[in-house]
Each structure stands twice: as C-alpha cells, then as structure tokens.
Design a protein around this nucleic acid. Structure first.
Lengths: 198, 198, 198, 198
DNA sequence: CATGAATGAGTTTTCATTCAT
DNA sequence: CATGAATGAAAACTCATTCAT
C-alpha cells in the first residue's frame, strides 16, 4: 500500500496536477495568459475542462501554483545572498547562480518577462517584482552612485534578455549563455569598483 | 464662418481618430491589449463602440495605426545610422537618439515591452523585432566577438529597462535617465574597444 | 440648357437611382438579400451609404422599387390574359410570353425564386405570390381536375427552374430555353385536353 | 434505479442536441437561415445561447448536422437507383420513393428550396446540388433528347413545388400529393418514351 | 477523479439608419 | 446631391466557472 505499486499508475497518480501545470505554462509562455483558454489546456491534456477544476480552483490559481513551485530557488538564492558578506565575489556568485536558476525555469521567466502587463493585475506580479528588487538590493548598495545602481539592474536584465531575446545570436547556445553571463558579471564588477570597493 | 469658430467644437472635428488612438494606447499600456475591451475605450471617449468601427476596421487596426504613427522616428534613426560611418561616435549618437525616441513615445514602447507575448501573434510583432534588430546591427559588427555583440544588445535593453522598470530608482527621473544613458553608452563603448577600435 | 449638354453628365443625371437598383439586384441575386449589406452596395458604386438614403428611404425600399419596376410586364401579361378567351391557344401564348418576361428580368426572378424565405416576411412576398396565382388561374380552370391544375402550376415552375436551375444542361442556352418552353407548353396542352377542351 | 425512472427527465437527458436541431430547422424553414438568430433558438428551448455552443461549434454546424442526418435517405435512394436496371419501372419507382422521402423531411427540403441563395455559400449547397443531379442522372440518360432531359428535371421540381408551393391547391393534402406524384410520373414516362423506350 | 451539460457575463464585429453640413 | 460622423440594436461567438452524477 502506498509503496511502489505498478509504476504505470504511479506515473498518473497525482501526476495530473503536474501535467496541467506543464501544459499550462507551455501555452501561457507561447500565447500569453489571456489568450490561452482552459479549453485549450484541457484539450491538449485530453481531459475535460471540469477536470482542471478538480485540481485548481481558478485559472489564476494554475498560474500561481506554477509560480510558487518554480520560484522557490530564487527565494533560496535571496536567503543565501543575504547571509553572505557583501563582497564582489558574493555578487558575482549571485549573478552566476541566478543565471542557472533562469536556465532551469526558462518558460516561467520567459512568461513573466513577456506578460508583464497581464501579470501586473494578477497578485503574483507584485510578488515577482519584490523578489527581483530583493535580488537587486543584494548586489547593489542603495546608497551607491545612481549609475552603478543602474548597472546592477542592467546586469539582471541582461540575463533576462539573454534568455528570451537573443535566441538568434551566436551559433552555439552554450557559448551565448557564457557571453551573457560574462557581460552581466562585468556590469556588477564595474558597479562594485565604482562604489569604492577596492 | 469657416474661420476660427469656437475652438471647442474644432477640437472635436476630425479629432476623434486621434483621440481613439490616445485613449487606446493609454489603456493598452496600462492593462494590456487583451484585457482592454473596445467597450472600455468607447466609454472613456464617451462615444459608442460602433464609432470606433467607423474609424478603424478592427481592434488590431487601432494598435497597428498607433504603431505605424509612432515608430516612424525609429525608422528615420535606422536610416540615418546606416548612412553614417561606423565609428564609435556614431554608435554613441545612436544610443543617445534612441533614448530620446523612447522618451517621446514612452507608452507605446512600454506597451511593446510588456506585451510581447500578445504582440508576437499580431503582425506588428515581427515588424518591431526587425526594427530592433536593424538597430542592433548598426551598433555591432556581426563578426565581432560574441561577448561584445551581447554588450550592445544589452545596451539597448538597458535603455528599455530604464524606461519601464526602474521607475522606483533614484529620486529625480531626469538624473535616472542620465544614468541609464551613461550605462548604455558605456556598454557600447566597451564593445567597440573589444572589437579592436583603437 | 437642359437640352443635350455634355453627355457625360447626362449619363449621371438622375441615373444614380437606376445604378443603385442595378447593383443592388445583382448583389441580392448573388448572395441573398440579408447577406448583402448597404455598405457593399455603396462601395461597389463608389458612393457613401448615406447617398443611398438620399434615393431610398430604407433597404427594403430598394428591393421594392426594383420589384415594382420589373414586374410591370407580368401585370400587363395578366391583364392581357384576362381579356382573352380561355382557349388553349391563349394559354400557350401566355406561357410563351411569360417565358420571355422571365428571360428579360432574369436576375429579379432568380432572386425571388432563391430567396423565398426572406421575401415571405417582406411585403412584396404576398404581392409576388398573388401575381403567380393570378397567372395560374388564367391557364387553369379552378374547377378542373386536380391533376391538371398541378400540371399547369408545374408548367410555370418548369419555366422558373429552367431559368435558374438548369444552367448546366445542354450546350446551347437557346436550345435549352426552347426545350424548357416546349415542356411547359406540353404540360398546359395536356392539362387542357384533360379538362375536356375539345 | 437506472431503469425507467420518470420519463420527463429522461426526455431531457441527452436529448438537447436533437431538440436544438428540431427547433432550429423549424425556425430556419420559417424565417430563413440568416434571419433566425441563435438567441431565438435558445429562447424557444429555454436554454442559453452558450448551451447551443456546447452542442455545436457554429451556427452553420447546426444546419450541417441537420442536413447530414436527414439526407441519408436520399443517398440510400441514389445508391439503390444505381443498382437497378435503367427501365421505366425503375424510374417511376424512384420518383415514388423520392416523393416519400420529401414528405418525411418536409421542413428540411422546404428550407433548402426556399433558401438557395443562402445555402449556396454554405458548403452544403454543393453537396445538395450534387445529390439532386445524381438523382436526375439516374432517371434520364444524358445522351437523350434535351426536351426529355428537361422533362425529367421538371418531374423533380414538380415534386419539390408540390411540397412547398401548392399548399393552397385542392382541399385534401393527400389528394394533392397523389396528383403531384401523378404529374411527375407522367413526365418521366413521357421522357422515357421519347428516349426510344418502347 | 473526472465528465457532461449548462450558464452568465463578456467579447468583437456588423448593420440599417440618422443628421448636420 | 452627397458626405462624414455617429448611433442603437443586435449578431455570432468565447470564456471561466459550476454542479449533479
């Protein structure tokens, strides 16, 4: 009981919830939240719309649940960052780790990035914005020179842009990711130098 | 007669088309394209929905018309850029001018930036993407080092982000804009240096 | 003055009304009354919708006016028929003349035939039905054998069908029309014989 | 339990689709396809418009579904006719059977007959036309004399007209139907004789 | 767990019609 | 004669959501 069972059933056991999230995110990222209907999601999963409502109370809840599941790593990163000394090395490491986090949840971040107007009215908007700001506040001293503040924010956006907007650049995606990371790291490094870090 | 008349009426004469565009853009930028209904636009203008259809064939056409009217300056800028020698000074000037262009059509660019998922299915998406790419291709040699290519793209996104995402940063918006411009210019300058510019 | 003028202007003088009728009938016959919009008519004539309203009070009036202009010949035919002796020759002549009438106003009759459901609610419906019935009553004695009554009605429908439904039959339209007329005449002849006509 | 239940509820169970078709056809036949709105259909059934869309994807699909369900007998008749020897008896039998078919699906055929302009743009138009042509081709040799071809087509239209246009003729509908059938049969018989049938 | 059936509120769009100029 | 601008009413259709089974 509850142990290993058959395996085929296990894949479907409680798995529907996850499958809904996967398909929903894929469609949200592709066509936007508003233009993705529950009918579409249900059809792709070959279940009825009503089935979605067994697992989630509303359409928005589907999105919220995806968001909550996938942004845990960012919260962890923020937590970690706050406990480190505010050295350049820490900041560089945060950039590095953030790049990894983005890479692992690309569709969600692509969605967040491309649907800001939608997301703004949708509870999670504030939540997401707050996280990004927390992150920014770790890598830049709010008392620093404004130009350096911008540089750090820009580092974050460079990572974002690298994920979603530069798909046509460079031949090898890995190489491109390395280049993006380098530019972002550079920006943070320059900001740090400007801020008087020796 | 026929001369100057009252002025109140004159403002409404033939002005409706423009007023629709204005209100529509405002709402599109605020709530997104999909979530803005024609009823909403019409109500704000105190006309009927059908009046909108007298001036525009479809909802999409409203957006397209706004887009076409407001992106002319970018096309001009691209045209100008292509006829200049590819010096660092040129590139810096393009960044400067592009910043101005963005500032003058903030709501449109905010809209484009925050509704990419929507815009992608909407004809003008490709058109806009193409313009940004053209701009990028002017400030970076496609044969340059990949890191420097990213730096230039990043310069453009820094300007974008500066417009729409950094509204809480710094006390004085003008100062912030100057800071944003400086970071973007820096990125281009660094890219140029890397590319072997003396 | 008022005499011959230029000729170009003369063609347009008061001609608009006729042109509206022509285009309207063409479109009504092609796509049906309901699916033909005034916008469509106006666009084809290269005038505005409002111009149509200068010449006709309503959409229905356009149709009514066409109807009235074009069905005069039928009324004349009925009038003529009523004053003839009820011989077989008269009936045959009516069939012959009716065939001519149909041929001369094909689009109208095609319209009436293919849009009966529409026309029924539209005033002219009754009017048209009454005319056809009058015609029928001339070529068949209401006291005749029911089979012969049907034969006569069938003669009329044969003519109609020949106009609108047999376009693919036979190589030469003229030949086909002659065949149609022959069948219709035959039917009337048979009916007459049945009715005890010597 | 599960057995016979009440009967009132049972009639409504799964019956909605059929009820929609029935009411729709009734209204389509009465006022025409274009002038019948989904609101009207829904109101008569005491359901919402959206309920219609649960059962049919579009308004047109309602019509198509009715058409497909009701024209099966014609297809069967054509199939049967093709496998018979082309004797006069066969042709007469086809006329007889076709009259029966028409009588059993009167509203649909009335609709098809009175809304040809509408139906023409509506997919099923061609489909219907093709069936009628197939039928015609069975009862008349395409190489026959043109007059006899017309006679056969006329036989079919006589049946049609008998259904929809002669409602005022004769006192007893059954008698009238018999008369119509007789005229149609006569026409086919004459055509056969003309074609060289002994 | 999931479905079949339905709803209410909304959407974009079209149309015949009006009227001041 | 004709237009430019607008309207009120209605159309077809979509969507998130509900609920008995």
């Amino acid at each position: 009981m509850g142990g290993t069972m058959d395996g085929t059933k296990q894949r479907r056991r409680g798995d529907t919830r996850r499958r809904i999230q996967d398909v929903a995110l894929e469609l949200f990222a592709e066509h936007g939240y508003e233009k993705t209907s529950l009918r579409e999601i249900a059809e792709r999963l070959d279940v009825t719309k009503a089935a979605l409502y067994y697992h989630f109370k509303t359409k928005e809840e589907i999105l919220v649940s995806i968001f909550e599941d996938l942004t845990q790593p960012i919260e962890d990163l923020i937590e970690w960052g706050r406990q480190q000394p505010p050295t350049l090395a820490t900041k560089q490491e945060i950039i590095r780790r953030y790049a990894d986090t983005l890479a692992e949840a690309t569709p969600l971040f692509r969605f967040m990035h491309e649907n800001q107007a939608t997301v703004r009215d949708l509870q999670i908007g504030e939540s997401f914005k707050a996280r990004i700001h927390s992150l920014r506040d770790i890598i830049v001293d709010p008392d620093a020179d404004l130009v350096d503040q911008v540089r750090c924010a820009s580092a974050i956006f460079t990572l974002h842009a690298g994920m979603f907007l530069l798909q046509d650049m460079g031949d090898d995606p890995k190489e491109k990711n390395r280049a993006v990371l380098e530019v972002a790291t550079d920006l943070v490094t320059q900001a740090h130098r400007g801020a008087g870090g020796s």
